[in-house]
């Protein structure tokens, strides 16, 4: 208990430096989730509604990619962005931009695979009715995305959880540079290795509190909306 209290006190002492780390964490993870959602939801809808050769293989692949190790993603993005790599000229390595790219890659399969499952369940219920009304695939996909919006919140939250919690990818492509690319998870790893366990613990609590707050808010919105719309 004493360690926890000490940790929280140390975190509060950090103030400006701490809030910079928290803000960067949120900026990176939320941007990554936004990008992954914009790509992942349409991909999930496509896989749920359209039947095409290779669809099942793609679903298996996507499900497997949910378990992609962050360090491996970090390494691959590192190779792409490093000065000798194909995207080297962009000069993104060790910037927040690189961290956003890495986390987007990490989160995309989660959002696509989970939304595919939710949308396919909805499609089973809606298919005959929508086809009877003359909805083509594109219209049906958009209808599903809108009608299953409450279930999709869970898919997006799972993605956000993954992004906020991972350390391997942002560490490799960001480099944990103080004031530039240091986020909560890399700061925790650093403080732990330096032996400053109370500070690491305090940062950990702030991270958990943030994730909890996001999930609680989303759940609240979801439940209110579900009561309202059935």
């Amino acid at each position: 208990m004493a360690a926890i209290a000490e940790g929280l006190r140390r975190v509060l002492e950090l103030d400006r430096e701490l809030w910079h780390i928290v803000a960067l964490s949120l900026e990176v993870s939320l941007s990554a989730v936004l990008i992954a959602t914009a790509l992942g939801l349409p991909l999930g809808a496509l896989l749920a509604v359209k039947r095409f050769p290779g669809r099942r293989t793609l679903i298996v692949l996507l499900n497997a990619l949910m378990g992609l190790p962050p360090v491996v993603v970090g390494l691959l993005i590192y190779l792409l962005l490093s000065r000798a790599g194909p995207l080297g000229p962009l000069g993104l390595l060790f910037t927040p931009g690189a961290m956003i790219i890495a986390q987007s890659v990490l989160v995309l399969p989660i959002i696509a695979a989970l939304s595919r499952q939710a949308l396919e369940d909805a499609w089973r219920e809606y298919e005959e009715q929508l086809r009877s009304l003359g909805a083509r695939e594109l219209a049906a996909g958009l209808t599903l995305l809108w009608d299953a919006r409450f279930s999709l919140v869970t898919a997006v939250l799972a993605g956000l959880g993954r992004a906020a919690a991972e350390v391997g990818a942002v560490m490799i492509v960001g480099g944990n540079i103080d004031g530039v690319t240091r986020v909560m998870t890399t700061a925790i790893a650093l403080e732990t290795s330096k032996g400053d366990l109370p500070l690491a613990l305090g940062l950990g609590f702030v991270l958990i509190a943030l994730v909890l707050a996001f999930n609680a808010a989303a759940q609240l919105v979801k439940e209110t909306a579900e009561r309202r719309f059935g």
């Binding site: 809606y126 005959e128 009715q129 009877s132 719309f229």
Partner: peptide
């Protein structure tokens, strides 16, 4: 043809709206 016929199912499927 699709527009000029309709079907009502045993369990109505209502959209969330």
């Amino acid at each position: 043809l699709r527009r000029r016929q309709a079907m009502v199912f045993q369990r109505p499927v209502m959209l969330r709206r």
